[in-house]
């Protein structure tokens, strides 16, 4: 009777302590601290492109969105731009949009860059870092793959090969 109770009490307390310990270790070492988690809804935003047209992320519901954050000084960004440009017309027909978010550089520089590479996909400029903050973007380039329901399917940090980009675009076809 009493002994039984004591054993139960001890077991419960030890399990509680173990759970707290396990959670602390887990939360500190096995979770990524990102503003946007994979599987969550991508935060909505509105930004203007070089022609002054507004792009609102939620307007792309029903399509996959390849959301690429970049800067003109970032060499890896520069390397993957031509691949994205090449694949863009093919996948646009299949319902996947590429949206390149520049991290608040002068419009002049972005334009010159786009001209140099003949970029055809829409490029928007995040003048006030608001979208950058909302997505918690650190190093460049960072790419968010967003499916037709507006959910983040994958976050890629660092440069991609053409094959990578193709696979990623493939994966968010509606």
């Amino acid at each position: 009777m009493k002994k039984q109770q004591r054993l139960v009490m001890r077991t419960v307390i030890l399990l509680l302590l173990l759970a707290a310990l396990g959670y602390t270790i887990y939360a500190n070492f096995f979770t990524e601290k990102t503003a946007v988690a994979v599987g969550s809804t991508a935060p909505d935003f509105v930004l203007s492109d070089l022609e002054g047209r507004e792009h609102r992320l939620s307007d792309y519901r029903g399509k996959g969105v390849f959301l690429n954050f970049w800067g003109t000084w970032c060499k890896p960004c520069e390397r993957e731009m031509p691949y994205m440009n090449e694949l863009y017309p093919i996948y646009q027909k299949q319902g996947v949009e590429i949206l390149a978010v520049n991290v608040g550089e002068p419009k002049l520089n972005v334009e010159k860059f786009a001209e140099r590479f003949g970029l055809t996909f829409p490029i928007v400029i995040d003048r006030q870092d608001q979208v950058l903050n909302a997505y918690g973007v650190g190093p460049l380039p960072t790419t968010f793959l967003i499916d037709k329901n507006g959910k983040v399917k994958k976050i890629i940090t660092g440069t991609m090969t053409k094959e990578d980009i193709k696979q990623h675009l493939e994966s968010i076809k509606p």
Binding site: F45, V46, L47, R56, V124, Q128, Q130, V131, A134
Partner: peptide
Amino acid sequence: VGPTVAGA
């Protein structure tokens, strides 16, 4: 004040 949409 008003709706929060990043970038707007």
